[in-house]
Structure formats: C-alpha cells, structure tokens
Nucleic acid binder design. Structure first.
Length: 580
RNA sequence: UGGGGAUUAGUGUAACGGUAGCACAACUGACUCUGGAUCAGUUAGUCUAGGUUCGAAUCCUAGAUCCCCAGCCA
C-alpha cells in the first residue's frame, strides 16, 4: 500500500518526525478506504482582521503539515466576508507570517470574496427550492424570536413568502435598493431545533460597505456559516480542519450542501470537517479581539511588540520558525481545551538557538574592574569560541585590557554560601582570558560599589592554569576601552498570571498586565564584534540568554531584544532562599 | 434545567482489551573555561461508582466536572 504512514512521513529540514494524532488517523484512514480517491486537500482560512498568533501557528502546522505528509496540498484562503473588519494590511502580514514559518501554498492563494457570485447563485437556487426566504424583521426581532437554549424559537411572519417574491426581494437587496439592516436572507430550516445554528440562520445581510478587494461591487455579504462550507466545496477541500467551536455548525454546513445538491445531477463537493482544540498558552492571551485592544490602548508598542504572542512579535523577539514548528509538533492535537506551559515554548527556542546562535560577551549592568598589575597601555586579543555546539562556527578575537566591565551580579562583597562568583580575596576566571583575584573595592559616599581592583595571573593566559588549580566560576567580561554601547530590552511575560483572564471581580485581563514585562537597559556594554550586527541576527550573550537585533538599531548603537534567558540555576537558588 | 464535545502525573501528550510510556516542569547527581549545553537518575497519573472479561485507560451502565452554542462576527 503506497499510503504514507503519518508517523514516518518525511518532514521539512529541521523538523523531527511527527507523532500521529486523531486528525492524521482520519486522513490516513480515508486514504486506505479511498474515500477521496487518494486526494488530500486542506486549507488555512484566516480572516484578514488581525495578525496571526502562535495559536494560528498550531492550525497552520496541522493544515499545511498534514497536506505535506500525505502528498496533498494546502490552500491559503482569506475568509474575507465581512468588509467592515478586514484590511489589506492584515492580508500582507498573514502572507508574510505563513511564509516565514516556511510553508508554501504554490498557486493556491484564494479569497472567499472571489466566490461571491457563485455563492449568490447557490442562494437563489435555495430560494427556488423554497429553502430560503427574505426576512424583513429587524435584527432585534430576529434575536427575540430565536428562542433560548431551552425554548424553541418562533417562525418569522415572512417565512411563508412565495418563491417569486423572495427572488425579487433578494435581487433588489443585491441591487442596493434597501438600507443596511432592513432585510436578510435566511435559510428555512427549523425554528425548534435544539441546535440553535439550525434555527433559520441568516445567510446574507445588507452592508453598503467598501470591500478591500471587491470595492463597491456588493452590498449584500454572505455570513460565515453560509460561505465557509461553500468555499471549501468550491476548492475541493477534502479535510476541512477547524477549531472545536465549529462542531455545532457542522450540521448546518451539511444541511446547506445537501440542500444545494438536492435534485442535482452532478452534486457539488461535500468536504469533511474535523475539529480540534485551539491552543492556549500560560501567561498569554490568544483572543484576536483582546490582542487588538492591547495594541489600540497602547499596552504594547504594536502588533509586532516582542511581548505579543503574534508571529510578528515572536519573530521580532528572536524566535525562529524552526522553534515554533517544533513547538507545534510537540503540543499535539486533541479535542479538549488545554493550556500549554509557556516553558515548553521557551525550551523549544533555547534548543534551537543553542545549536545555531553565535556566542558573544555582553555586560548588561557594568561594574568596572581594574587589573592593577596589568599595564595601562597594553592590549591583548584573546581567542574565543563562537559556538561550542558547532565547531564549524570557528573562533574570533576579543580585546582584553587593564580596565574591564563585568556584570554587577557577578560580584558580592559578602557572598552567601552558594555564591561561586567574584568576592574579595577570591579568584575566578575571566572567560578566554586570565584568572583574576579581587584585591579591593571602591565605593562611593553611599557605600555603593563603584569599581573593583584585581590582580591577574599571567600564567593563566587563555583561561587555563598550568598548575592545574581550579576556580569555581567563569565570568564574562568586556574590555572598557573597546566596549560598544548598546540598548538591551529585557522582556518578561506580558501577564503575570497563568490565566490572564482570571481577574479580580469587576476587573478584566488588563489587571494582570505585568508592569515589569519590559525593562530597557540603556547602557549595556557589548563586545566590539557586534558593531556590524544586522537586524534579525541572533546571538547568545554568554551566561545571560539569547538576544536578537531589533530593527530599531542605529549605526553604532545596536538594540537587542532578549528572546529568552539561559536556564539559570543560580537565579533559581536565589528565588528559593527569597521565598522560603 | 435543550443540544453538541470532552476528561490519563504539575503541564502537554501516547497506549486502539494484554507490563500505563514520552516531553516540558520540578528535584538529585556527574561533567563542564557559560551556575549554559550534555549525561545519569528521582518524584508524580487513568474523574467517580458499579458491571462485562482470565485481563479494562480502552467495552457497558450511572454519576461528577469542564468547554461550546441564543451576532445581520468569524
């Protein structure tokens, strides 16, 4: 049997073999039974009314991933049926983001709006079959007569209109004879159905609005429920994969397609819908509406703010497509709502960046160190390894001199037991340079440490002691004379609660905004090799974390975004003793 | 209290009537010129109650809990 086994399917470079899941099992089974003649056609159908986020990445990964594994194709289709919310800016960002993730739709870029004429014809067909009618009730009246979860609705007084009258009215709706909201086209199904979606759903509403692609060609626009199944049908989609909340709508899509096909010699294609649970991430919001609010209310700098879970935000933060794809592969697919720990996403970027990011030394909070027994005008260049995980990355030269900067956190005048770093009288290694011993501390009037005096051991050049003596710590450093100033932006969770929506009574998610989600370090000292760093380049600042060059960088003054910290067992130790 | 869906360690998932496994997190330890990486190990789970069966996470019955649906949004 030539059918691809999902578990062993060939994947794109960088991806691990993918585990199977219930969606893939259905697709594989359909392959075995020949349900679709061996074809697999999926689609990713975003509405262009916002930027894509990590939750969309999950859907994209399922839609495109399955098509690829099963030798099929995946369409990128914009579900642009509501001209009042959609914009070209969003179309552009979505195209860019899906490409960035590494997926390719070939020729198959579509717009639901391109099918408006066909949909309209299908609608007239339903009217002729007496399966749809024009309702003159107001939105309010329709709402009131829909009934409730436990009570059936009431039929519209216009429900019994004749075919000719309905046709005439619908055509005049299209012709623009009626104002917005004055009439709708509804399907004639069952006002007593326990599934509210079947209580004569609205198919068309009048909207005298400018469409981003259709311009003013239309003033009736199809509702999602009417349009979506038809879009999939028109494109020959075999597996229409969507999120759980559309499970209740499936009977309606089936009804629409069956109604169109009733009495047809050549029935139109009827896709199979499969629903999966959307992604939730701890400390993260996934609602497009709320994300829009964060942008519009200035809680973040924009859709691509590095704290946003948008793909453009994650990209600017320094995440790689590979890391995101790997994350999507690991979280699996299921049918119940679950919240993935952000730590897994962090793990995925670290894993990827660890093997590809060049190492570099940068000091975020500089503490001046003076090596008293090192000549003031002497400069040496030390050999530093670019990436211990990748010998092919080679080495570079790092200048060393009498005055250096080290991290303030790497010195304690009165260190606790488990602090291994520099302290008065203690010897540590300066990475790739020398062993130094702290011999003195300079302080200002307030008692704050302003500089350290050390001596170095010339025999330890390069970082090894010929006598075999050990030090307990290795510190990163930057030569004061050669250091480059840089701005470094340290990011933390945008929300400090695992579930941002879990707000105190009477408040909303904004109450859980983390005031410390962004810390700007204006005067970091970075090693001179970073002078030519370009936007988007990623580095590991040794012992600190992974950083990405921000597009805000200017010549001579780079700006770095912290993607994620390194795992830090010392920080963990401190946290433990801080909160006993 | 209508209808639809779901429930496996802290979290996310696997098992398709036959030893409950993996990953993340947490915790030990080894190693280390990054308190990184790596390696070894530990903790910890089938929603509940019955039933069928030699044997149940899996099948049956009842219950519990959670999610979705009352837009002229998608």
């Amino acid at each position: 049997m030539p059918q691809t086994e999902p578990g062993s399917a060939a994947n794109s470079p960088g991806d691990e073999p993918r585990p199977s899941d219930f969606v893939r099992e259905i697709v594989a089974e359909d392959g075995r039974t020949g349900k679709w003649g061996g074809r697999v056609v999926t689609r990713f159908p975003p509405e262009p009314n916002g930027y894509l986020h990590i939750g969309h990445a999950k859907a994209i990964h399922i839609d495109f991933g399955i098509a690829q594994e099963f030798g099929g194709r995946c369409h990128l289709r914009f579900d642009d049926t509501n001209p009042t919310k959609e914009e070209d800016e969003y179309v552009r960002s979505i195209v860019e983001d899906v490409r960035w993730l590494g997926w390719d739709w070939g020729e198959h870029l579509y717009y639901a709006s391109d099918y408006f004429e066909q949909m309209y014809e299908y609608a007239e067909e339903l009217i002729r079959k007496s399966k749809a009618y024009v309702d003159d009730q107001s939105a309010e009246e329709i709402r009131l007569s829909r009934g409730t979860l436990t009570q059936p609705g009431r039929e519209s007084p216009y429900r019994g209109r004749g075919v000719e009258e309905n046709l005439d009215l619908f055509r005049r709706m299209r012709a623009g004879e009626f104002p917005d909201g004055s009439r709708v086209l509804r399907a004639k199904i069952d006002m007593a159905s326990p599934n509210l979606n079947l209580r004569d759903p609205v198919m068309y509403r009048i909207l005298h609005a400018h469409h981003h692609r259709q311009g003013d060609a239309w003033c009736v626009y199809p509702m999602y429920d009417w349009a979506h199944g038809l879009e999939d049908s028109i494109e020959g989609v075999t597996h229409s994969i969507c999120t759980l909340e559309f499970e209740n709508h499936r009977p309606l899509y089936d009804w629409f397609l069956d109604a169109i096909n009733e009495g047809r010699d050549r029935p139109i294609h009827h896709p199979q819908q499969i629903e999966f649970a959307r992604l939730e991430l701890t400390c993260t919001l996934m609602s497009k509406r709320k994300l829009l609010q964060l942008v519009e209310n200035g809680h973040v700098g924009g859709w691509d703010d590095p704290r946003m879970p948008t793909l453009s935000g994650l990209r600017r933060r320094g995440f790689t497509p590979e890391a995101i794809r790997n994350f999507c592969r690991r979280i699996g697919v299921n049918k119940f709502n679950s919240t993935v720990d952000y730590a897994l996403l962090a793990h995925c970027v670290r894993e990827d960046l660890n093997r590809r990011a060049p190492r570099v030394m940068s000091v975020l909070r500089p503490l001046k160190v003076i090596i008293d027994n090192y000549d003031a005008d002497r400069v040496e260049t030390m050999d530093a390894v670019n990436n211990p995980e990748d010998p092919a990355a080679g080495t570079r030269k790092v200048p060393f001199g009498r005055e250096l900067y080290i991290e303030r956190d790497d010195f304690m005048e009165d260190p606790p037991k488990k602090f291994f770093r520099l302290a008065p009288g203690r010897e540590v290694r300066l990475r790739y340079a020398y062993f130094v011993t702290c011999t003195g501390v300079e302080k200002d009037a307030g008692g704050n440490v302003t500089a350290l005096h050390c001596t170095y051991d010339p025999a330890t050049r390069g970082g090894d002691a010929p006598d075999g003596r050990k030090v307990k710590a290795t510190l990163h450093w930057v030569s004061a004379a050669h250091a480059l100033n840089a701005e470094v932006r340290l990011y933390d969770h945008l929300f400090n609660k695992a579930d941002p929506n879990d707000a105190p009574e009477g408040q909303d998610y904004t109450a859980n905004l983390n005031p410390a989600s962004l810390e700007v370090v204006a005067d970091a000292k970075v090693e001179p090799s970073l002078a030519g760093a370009k936007g988007g380049e990623r580095f590991q600042f040794e012992r600190l974390g992974y950083f990405c060059v921000d597009p805000d960088s200017a010549a001579g003054r780079p700006v770095f975004n912290r993607t994620v910290t390194l795992k830090d067992t010392w920080a963990k130790e401190q946290k433990k003793s801080a909160t006993p």
